[in-house]
Protein backbone atom coordinates (compact mmCIF):
# COMPACT_ATOMS: atom_id res chain seq x y z
CA UNK A 1 0.00 0.00 0.00
CA UNK A 2 2.80 2.39 0.89
CA UNK A 3 4.35 1.59 -2.47
CA UNK A 4 1.21 2.75 -4.23
CA UNK A 5 1.12 6.00 -2.30
CA UNK A 6 4.79 6.70 -2.97
CA UNK A 7 4.07 6.20 -6.64
CA UNK A 8 1.04 8.47 -6.53
CA UNK A 9 3.10 11.05 -4.63
CA UNK A 10 5.79 10.93 -7.31
CA UNK A 11 3.34 11.11 -10.21
CA UNK A 12 1.21 13.83 -8.67
CA UNK A 13 0.13 16.53 -11.10
CA UNK A 14 0.23 19.14 -8.37
CA UNK A 15 3.45 18.67 -6.44
CA UNK A 16 3.57 20.51 -3.13
CA UNK A 17 7.30 21.06 -2.80
CA UNK A 18 10.32 21.68 -4.97
CA UNK A 19 11.71 18.28 -3.99
CA UNK A 20 8.53 16.45 -4.94
CA UNK A 21 8.43 18.18 -8.32
CA UNK A 22 12.04 17.30 -9.07
CA UNK A 23 11.75 13.68 -7.92
CA UNK A 24 8.50 13.37 -9.86
CA UNK A 25 10.19 14.54 -13.04
CA UNK A 26 13.03 12.06 -12.47
CA UNK A 27 10.57 9.24 -11.85
CA UNK A 28 8.69 10.06 -15.07
CA UNK A 29 11.97 9.84 -16.94
CA UNK A 30 12.80 6.52 -15.28
CA UNK A 31 9.41 5.10 -16.30
CA UNK A 32 10.02 6.13 -19.91
CA UNK A 33 13.49 4.64 -19.80
CA UNK A 34 12.31 1.41 -18.20
CA UNK A 35 9.80 0.87 -20.96
CA UNK A 36 12.71 0.45 -23.38
CA UNK A 37 13.87 -3.17 -22.85
CA UNK A 38 17.09 -2.91 -24.83
CA UNK A 39 18.14 0.22 -23.00
CA UNK A 40 17.64 -1.66 -19.73
CA UNK A 41 19.88 -4.44 -21.05
CA UNK A 42 22.52 -1.81 -21.88
CA UNK A 43 22.18 -0.29 -18.42
CA UNK A 44 22.47 -3.72 -16.77
CA UNK A 45 25.68 -4.49 -18.68
CA UNK A 46 27.19 -1.15 -17.70
CA UNK A 47 26.21 -1.52 -14.05
CA UNK A 48 27.85 -4.94 -14.16
CA UNK A 49 30.96 -3.38 -15.70
CA UNK A 50 31.15 -0.80 -12.95
CA UNK A 51 30.76 -3.48 -10.27
CA UNK A 52 33.42 -5.65 -11.88
CA UNK A 53 35.79 -2.68 -12.07
CA UNK A 54 35.11 -1.72 -8.46
CA UNK A 55 35.75 -5.21 -7.10
CA UNK A 56 38.36 -6.31 -9.66
CA UNK A 57 41.02 -7.51 -7.16
CA UNK A 58 38.47 -9.71 -5.36
CA UNK A 59 36.74 -11.07 -8.46
CA UNK A 60 39.77 -11.80 -10.60
CA UNK A 61 40.79 -15.45 -10.09
CA UNK A 62 44.48 -14.71 -10.61
CA UNK A 63 47.01 -11.91 -10.63
CA UNK A 64 46.73 -10.22 -14.04
CA UNK A 65 50.46 -9.65 -14.19
CA UNK A 66 51.60 -13.11 -13.02
CA UNK A 67 53.41 -14.84 -15.85
CA UNK A 68 53.59 -18.58 -16.17
CA UNK A 69 55.47 -19.51 -19.30
CA UNK A 70 54.70 -23.20 -18.80
CA UNK A 71 51.02 -22.37 -19.20
CA UNK A 72 51.30 -20.02 -22.19
CA UNK A 73 48.62 -19.93 -24.90
CA UNK A 74 46.35 -22.41 -23.12
CA UNK A 75 42.84 -22.72 -24.58
CA UNK A 76 39.85 -21.94 -22.32
CA UNK A 77 39.61 -24.58 -19.62
CA UNK A 78 38.42 -25.07 -16.04
CA UNK A 79 41.56 -23.51 -14.54
CA UNK A 80 41.74 -20.64 -17.09
CA UNK A 81 38.15 -19.90 -18.12
CA UNK A 82 39.14 -17.72 -21.07
CA UNK A 83 42.56 -19.23 -21.67
CA UNK A 84 45.98 -17.67 -21.28
CA UNK A 85 48.02 -15.31 -23.42
CA UNK A 86 51.55 -15.51 -24.85
CA UNK A 87 53.13 -14.96 -21.44
CA UNK A 88 50.85 -17.40 -19.66
CA UNK A 89 48.75 -14.70 -17.98
CA UNK A 90 45.11 -15.47 -17.25
CA UNK A 91 43.00 -13.62 -19.84
CA UNK A 92 39.89 -13.45 -17.65
CA UNK A 93 41.82 -11.75 -14.85
CA UNK A 94 43.33 -9.32 -17.33
CA UNK A 95 39.91 -8.52 -18.77
CA UNK A 96 38.51 -7.88 -15.31
CA UNK A 97 41.35 -5.54 -14.41
CA UNK A 98 41.15 -3.98 -17.88
CA UNK A 99 37.59 -2.90 -17.16
CA UNK A 100 39.07 -0.29 -14.82
CA UNK A 101 41.19 1.12 -17.63
CA UNK A 102 38.20 1.18 -19.96
CA UNK A 103 36.04 2.96 -17.41
CA UNK A 104 38.81 5.45 -16.73
CA UNK A 105 39.11 6.28 -20.44
CA UNK A 106 35.37 6.51 -21.02
CA UNK A 107 34.74 8.48 -17.87
CA UNK A 108 37.46 11.03 -18.41
CA UNK A 109 36.69 11.61 -22.07
CA UNK A 110 32.98 11.85 -21.26
CA UNK A 111 33.76 14.47 -18.65
CA UNK A 112 36.08 16.59 -20.79
CA UNK A 113 34.86 16.53 -24.39
CA UNK A 114 31.14 17.38 -23.99
CA UNK A 115 31.98 20.11 -21.48
CA UNK A 116 34.42 21.82 -23.85
CA UNK A 117 31.91 21.34 -26.67
CA UNK A 118 29.02 22.71 -24.64
CA UNK A 119 31.02 25.75 -23.63
CA UNK A 120 32.40 26.58 -27.08
CA UNK A 121 29.15 25.82 -28.90
CA UNK A 122 26.77 27.73 -26.69
CA UNK A 123 29.04 30.76 -26.40
CA UNK A 124 29.45 30.83 -30.18
CA UNK A 125 25.75 30.40 -30.84
CA UNK A 126 24.63 32.84 -28.20
CA UNK A 127 27.15 35.62 -28.80
CA UNK A 128 27.04 35.45 -32.60
CA UNK A 129 29.10 37.85 -34.69
CA UNK A 130 32.87 37.56 -34.68
CA UNK A 131 32.96 35.38 -31.54
CA UNK A 132 30.90 32.84 -33.42
CA UNK A 133 33.15 33.11 -36.47
CA UNK A 134 36.38 32.61 -34.54
CA UNK A 135 35.13 29.71 -32.39
CA UNK A 136 33.52 27.91 -35.28
CA UNK A 137 36.57 28.24 -37.55
CA UNK A 138 38.69 26.69 -34.78
CA UNK A 139 36.13 23.91 -34.55
CA UNK A 140 36.30 23.46 -38.32
CA UNK A 141 40.08 23.11 -38.17
CA UNK A 142 39.73 20.29 -35.64
CA UNK A 143 36.98 18.68 -37.68
CA UNK A 144 39.09 18.81 -40.84
CA UNK A 145 41.50 16.17 -39.46
CA UNK A 146 40.49 12.53 -39.12
CA UNK A 147 40.01 12.04 -35.39
CA UNK A 148 42.29 9.06 -34.89
CA UNK A 149 45.11 10.62 -36.94
CA UNK A 150 44.93 13.80 -34.89
CA UNK A 151 44.90 11.78 -31.67
CA UNK A 152 47.92 9.86 -32.97
CA UNK A 153 49.73 13.13 -33.62
CA UNK A 154 48.93 14.34 -30.10
CA UNK A 155 50.12 11.12 -28.49
CA UNK A 156 53.26 11.13 -30.63
CA UNK A 157 53.98 14.68 -29.44
CA UNK A 158 53.09 14.08 -25.76
CA UNK A 159 54.55 10.61 -25.49
CA UNK A 160 52.73 7.27 -25.30
CA UNK A 161 50.76 6.39 -22.18
CA UNK A 162 47.18 5.97 -21.09
CA UNK A 163 46.86 9.48 -19.64
CA UNK A 164 48.06 11.14 -22.83
CA UNK A 165 45.86 8.87 -24.92
CA UNK A 166 42.81 9.98 -22.95
CA UNK A 167 43.82 13.61 -23.27
CA UNK A 168 44.33 13.26 -27.00
CA UNK A 169 40.94 11.58 -27.41
CA UNK A 170 39.21 14.28 -25.38
CA UNK A 171 40.88 17.10 -27.27
CA UNK A 172 39.99 15.61 -30.63
CA UNK A 173 36.41 14.62 -29.88
CA UNK A 174 34.88 17.89 -28.67
CA UNK A 175 34.19 19.58 -32.07
CA UNK A 176 31.03 17.57 -32.89
CA UNK A 177 29.63 18.51 -29.47
CA UNK A 178 30.39 22.16 -30.13
CA UNK A 179 28.55 21.99 -33.47
CA UNK A 180 25.57 20.30 -31.86
CA UNK A 181 25.44 22.75 -28.96
CA UNK A 182 25.70 25.72 -31.32
CA UNK A 183 22.85 24.44 -33.50
CA UNK A 184 20.66 23.99 -30.42
CA UNK A 185 21.58 27.42 -29.11
CA UNK A 186 20.68 29.11 -32.38
CA UNK A 187 17.13 27.81 -32.15
CA UNK A 188 16.87 28.56 -28.42
CA UNK A 189 18.19 32.10 -28.40
CA UNK A 190 15.32 33.46 -30.48
CA UNK A 191 12.69 31.83 -28.28
CA UNK A 192 10.12 33.93 -26.48
CA UNK A 193 11.16 32.64 -23.05
CA UNK A 194 14.64 34.05 -23.64
CA UNK A 195 13.10 37.37 -24.69
CA UNK A 196 10.92 37.30 -21.57
CA UNK A 197 13.94 36.72 -19.33
CA UNK A 198 15.80 39.52 -21.10
CA UNK A 199 12.88 41.81 -20.40
CA UNK A 200 13.30 41.04 -16.72
CA UNK A 201 16.87 42.27 -16.94
CA UNK A 202 18.65 38.90 -17.11
CA UNK A 203 22.26 39.26 -18.26
CA UNK A 204 23.89 37.13 -20.97
CA UNK A 205 25.72 34.91 -18.46
CA UNK A 206 22.52 34.07 -16.60
CA UNK A 207 20.69 33.38 -19.87
CA UNK A 208 23.52 31.15 -21.07
CA UNK A 209 23.92 29.09 -17.91
CA UNK A 210 20.38 29.07 -16.55
CA UNK A 211 18.33 28.99 -19.74
CA UNK A 212 20.39 27.73 -22.67
CA UNK A 213 22.52 25.05 -21.00
CA UNK A 214 19.67 23.02 -19.48
CA UNK A 215 18.19 22.60 -22.95
CA UNK A 216 21.51 21.73 -24.63
CA UNK A 217 22.74 19.31 -21.99
CA UNK A 218 20.22 16.59 -22.69
CA UNK A 219 21.09 16.24 -26.37
CA UNK A 220 24.78 16.31 -25.49
CA UNK A 221 24.30 13.51 -22.96
CA UNK A 222 22.55 11.41 -25.57
CA UNK A 223 25.26 12.15 -28.09
CA UNK A 224 27.97 11.34 -25.54
CA UNK A 225 26.37 8.01 -24.66
CA UNK A 226 26.22 7.11 -28.34
CA UNK A 227 29.82 8.28 -28.84
CA UNK A 228 31.17 6.21 -25.96
CA UNK A 229 31.39 3.12 -28.14
CA UNK A 230 33.51 5.06 -30.64
CA UNK A 231 35.73 6.37 -27.86
CA UNK A 232 36.31 2.88 -26.47
CA UNK A 233 37.21 1.75 -29.98
CA UNK A 234 39.54 4.73 -30.51
CA UNK A 235 41.24 4.06 -27.18
CA UNK A 236 41.55 0.41 -28.16
CA UNK A 237 42.92 1.54 -31.51
CA UNK A 238 45.58 3.66 -29.83
CA UNK A 239 46.38 0.74 -27.54
CA UNK A 240 46.54 -1.56 -30.55
CA UNK A 241 49.03 0.77 -32.25
CA UNK A 242 51.10 0.76 -29.08
CA UNK A 243 50.48 4.44 -28.32
CA UNK A 244 47.92 4.03 -25.56
CA UNK A 245 48.32 1.85 -22.51
CA UNK A 246 51.83 0.48 -22.16
CA UNK A 247 52.60 -3.11 -21.21
CA UNK A 248 52.01 -4.78 -18.89
CA UNK A 249 48.83 -2.73 -18.28
CA UNK A 250 45.84 -4.92 -19.17
CA UNK A 251 44.16 -2.56 -21.64
CA UNK A 252 41.70 -4.31 -23.95
CA UNK A 253 43.02 -2.79 -27.20
CA UNK A 254 46.60 -3.60 -26.30
CA UNK A 255 45.52 -7.16 -25.47
CA UNK A 256 44.09 -7.58 -28.96
CA UNK A 257 47.31 -6.24 -30.34
CA UNK A 258 49.26 -8.84 -28.36
CA UNK A 259 47.05 -11.60 -29.68
CA UNK A 260 47.42 -10.51 -33.28
CA UNK A 261 50.49 -12.67 -33.96
CA UNK A 262 48.68 -15.82 -32.83
CA UNK A 263 45.25 -15.00 -34.21
CA UNK A 264 45.04 -18.05 -36.50
CA UNK A 265 46.26 -20.72 -34.09
CA UNK A 266 45.25 -19.30 -30.73
CA UNK A 267 42.10 -17.32 -31.53
CA UNK A 268 41.01 -16.71 -27.92
CA UNK A 269 43.94 -14.40 -27.15
CA UNK A 270 42.57 -11.69 -29.45
CA UNK A 271 38.91 -12.74 -29.50
CA UNK A 272 38.22 -12.46 -25.75
CA UNK A 273 39.18 -8.78 -25.33
CA UNK A 274 37.51 -8.11 -28.70
CA UNK A 275 34.32 -9.63 -27.36
CA UNK A 276 34.56 -7.48 -24.22
CA UNK A 277 34.97 -4.30 -26.30
CA UNK A 278 32.04 -5.35 -28.47
CA UNK A 279 29.71 -6.01 -25.52
CA UNK A 280 30.53 -2.78 -23.72
CA UNK A 281 30.27 -0.67 -26.90
CA UNK A 282 26.91 -2.24 -27.65
CA UNK A 283 25.74 -1.53 -24.11
CA UNK A 284 26.64 2.14 -24.46
CA UNK A 285 24.76 2.38 -27.75
CA UNK A 286 21.66 0.77 -26.26
CA UNK A 287 21.85 3.09 -23.26
CA UNK A 288 22.21 6.11 -25.56
CA UNK A 289 19.10 5.11 -27.49
CA UNK A 290 17.13 4.78 -24.27
CA UNK A 291 18.41 8.11 -22.98
CA UNK A 292 17.33 9.78 -26.18
CA UNK A 293 13.76 8.66 -25.59
CA UNK A 294 13.88 10.18 -22.12
CA UNK A 295 15.88 13.34 -22.67
CA UNK A 296 15.39 14.59 -26.20
CA UNK A 297 13.47 17.84 -25.82
CA UNK A 298 12.06 17.48 -29.32
CA UNK A 299 10.36 14.21 -28.43
CA UNK A 300 7.12 14.84 -26.61
CA UNK A 301 6.14 17.77 -24.45
CA UNK A 302 8.70 17.33 -21.69
Amino acid sequence: MTEMTTRAWLLSDAPQTRRQARLGALYQGWLTFRANRLAMVGLAILVLLVLVAAFAPWIAPQNPFAQDLAQRLQPPSASHWLGTDALGRDILSRLIHGSRVTLFIVGTVALIAPVIGLFVGTVAGFAGGWVDQVLMRITDIFLAFPKLILALAFVAALGPGIGNAVLALAVTSWPPYARLARAETLTIRRADYIAAARLQGAGPLRLLIGHVWPLCVSSLIVRAALDMAGIILSAAGLGFLGLGAQPPMPEWGAMISDGRSYILDFWWVAAMPGLAIFVVSLAFNLLGDGLRDVLDPKEGPR
Partner: peptide, 12 residues
Protein backbone atom coordinates in the same frame (compact mmCIF):
# COMPACT_ATOMS: atom_id res chain seq x y z
CA UNK B 1 3.77 37.10 -25.46
CA UNK B 2 1.44 35.64 -28.01
CA UNK B 3 2.17 31.95 -27.71
CA UNK B 4 2.15 30.62 -24.14
CA UNK B 5 3.64 27.37 -25.44
CA UNK B 6 6.77 29.22 -26.54
CA UNK B 7 7.08 31.84 -23.84
CA UNK B 8 7.74 29.50 -20.89
CA UNK B 9 11.05 27.68 -20.56
CA UNK B 10 10.23 23.96 -20.98
CA UNK B 11 12.58 22.90 -18.16
CA UNK B 12 11.68 25.57 -15.60
Amino acid sequence: FQDPYASLHPRH
